[in-house]
Structure formats: C-alpha cells, structure tokens
C-alpha cells in the first residue's frame, strides 16, 4: 500500500534577482495516522516545506502525491478543492475571523464545502468544539477567548470537513506551557485515536516528543543529525 503523502525531489526556489532556494530536493513518505514533526533552525525551510505538503504552494520542481492523487496537473481552484475536503490547517496565530462567532468560524469550511445541511453542520461544529472542551464558548467571538482556547478553535476549524491530514505550523508557538501541552495532547489523540495524519512544524522539543517521527531540516535539506537526541527519528 502506498503512503498517504509522497513527495519526490521537491525543490522550491523563490525567483528573486538572486534566486533563493528554500527547499532542496526533499523526498519523503508519510503514512496514514502518522504524527510527523518537522524540526529545524529558523530559515531552514520547514514552513516552506509544510506549505508545499499542504498544497498552499507549488514546488519549482519535483512531484507530490496526496491520497493517490498526482497534484502536478491541478490548477489553483482544484488545489483549493483538495485543501477544502482533505486538508486542515492550524497556524501559529489562530487566524480566526474576528467578526464571526466561534461556531461560525468552525462552520466556515463546512459551509464552503456544502456537503452537510444547516442543522447537521451546526451539530458537527458543536460536537467538534465539545470534544476540545469548548462547548460553552460557541457563541463567543474569538477576542473573548484565551490564546489556548483560540488555538483549540483553530484545531476544531481544521477538523471541520473531516480531513485526512492536519498541517500545523508552530501550533504552540504562541502558547503558555499548559496550553501547549493541551494542544499537543489533542494532536496526539487525533493521530492515535482518529487515524488523522498530523504534520507539524515546531521548534519545541517538548512538543516534538509526542510525535511518531521527527524530520530534521537544515538549509532546506533533510538533516537527521539536527533532531535532538531522545526524539523519535
């Protein structure tokens, strides 16, 4: 059986006057239900790699298969549709829409997908929020929540359309230690109990300790030596 996500010789170069190569010939495979952490120093290209794996950005060369789909021939709208139905994102900043309630934020991807009816969407969103301990926050606006709560709302939103993969870019970068531990446990459970594939970029060795596998990245290349000792390779 082939991997859920397979990258082959991914290269991403920014076409500036002096071209900058962010990602250098990276090949990797990630299995269904795996919790993978990408680690590396600042500027090592780990976020850029995440954007490539999340179909937010296109590689300059190399190929990427997601769930058996070869994404090379997809146009912007087709990539957006794949993101909508198969991927979920959590960023360092929560990026919730300030004018909408927590519930509306979680329902937003569902409404765009339009697979569920209004009442079913509401129930599903409330269920997701409840599972993350946010049942009583559904009617509030994002600015009425704490940082940890907002990040959990962002996780609920990423889960809205029941994606195969959750991509997280420094999900605990802005959180205190107890909130960090909470988010880490949530992602861990999503992988172990619900079979979601988690790909997260982090600096935080403590966060990385929850992962099944760590990928070290230096200057856009895979560098196993960069992964701190004691973490799964």
């Amino acid at each position: 059986m082939s991997a859920l996500l397979r990258a082959e010789s991914l290269v991403r170069t920014l076409p500036l006057t002096v071209p900058v190569t962010l990602v250098h010939d990276i090949s990797l495979e990630i299995e269904r239900g795996e919790f993978v952490v990408i680690m590396g120093p600042s500027g090592s290209g780990k976020s850029s790699l995440l954007y490539l794996l999340g179909l937010l950005d296109r590689p300059t060369s190399g190929r990427l298969w997601l769930d058996g789909l070869d994404t090379a021939g997809f146009d912007e709208d087709a990539l957006a549709d794949v993101r909508l139905s198969r991927l979920g994102f959590v960023f360092q900043f929560h990026f919730l829409l300030a004018e909408f309630t927590v519930l509306d934020n979680v329902m937003l991807p569902m409404r765009r997908l339009g697979r569920l009816g209004g009442e079913a969407m509401r129930e599903r969103a409330l269920g997701l929020l409840g599972g993350l301990g946010l049942a009583d926050q559904a009617g509030k606006r994002p600015d009425q929540l704490s940082g940890g709560q907002r990040q959990r709302v962002a996780v609920a939103r990423a889960l809205a359309n029941d994606p195969l993969v959750i991509l997280a870019d420094e999900p605990t970068g802005n959180l205190d230690s107890s909130s960090s531990a909470n988010v880490r446990q949530i992602l861990r459970d999503l992988a172990s109990k619900q079979g979601k594939t988690i790909i997260a970029v982090t600096h935080d060795a403590n966060f990385a300790s929850a992962a099944d596998r760590c990928i070290g990245l230096v200057d856009g290349r895979v560098s196993p030596g960069w992964v701190p000792p004691g973490l799964p390779r």
Binding site: G54, L56, E76, D77, A80, D81, V82, R83, L84, S85, L87, G88, F89, F91, F95, L97, A98, L108, P109, R112, L113, R157
Partner: peptide, 16 residues
C-alpha cells in the same frame, strides 16, 4: 488580507 489568506488556505477559490 489575513482573513483572505486563511480563507484561501482552507479552500476558498479566488472567485469566492
């Protein structure tokens, strides 16, 4: 701009 970016990343088309 941030909201637009997040909506596009979650799967909104340019047309949306």
């Amino acid at each position: 701009t941030r909201d637009i970016a997040i909506m596009k990343s979650m799967g909104f088309h340019a047309g949306d």
